[in-house]
């Protein structure tokens, strides 16, 4: 039963990651077409990075069940790095 639940979680997470990847690439193709809204597209793509990172950290790496410190450290990575990259591109 526990195994079935874990497999279900992993499968849903995998599908969500695939969808987010396709969305991210699709949005990227608009960057050249809508140059005026480039900033908005960059923010969305970087936000998707965070959403994908959250899935990998919590579900695949199983850090949701780990001590808070380690989960926070990994979360800091997928939050701070996209923010820093975003600031470099947008400022």
């Amino acid at each position: 039963m526990q195994s079935t639940n874990a497999n279900k979680k992993n499968t849903l997470s995998w599908l969500w990651l695939l969808i987010l990847t396709v969305i991210s690439t699709y949005i990227g193709s608009f960057l050249e077409l809508f140059n005026t809204q480039k900033s908005l597209f960059i923010i969305i793509v970087l936000f998707i990075v965070f959403l994908k990172g959250q899935q990998i950290i919590d579900i695949f790496m199983e850090l949701k069940k780990a001590p808070k410190l380690w989960r926070r450290l990994l979360f800091a990575y997928v939050i701070l790095l996209p923010v820093i990259i975003g600031l470099i591109y947008l400022l």
Partner: peptide, 13 residues
């Protein structure tokens, strides 16, 4: 995890 940052940085944005 590294690739999901690398991919948008180099290929998308």
């Amino acid at each position: 995890l590294l690739w999901i940052i690398l991919f948008p940085l180099i290929y998308v944005i």
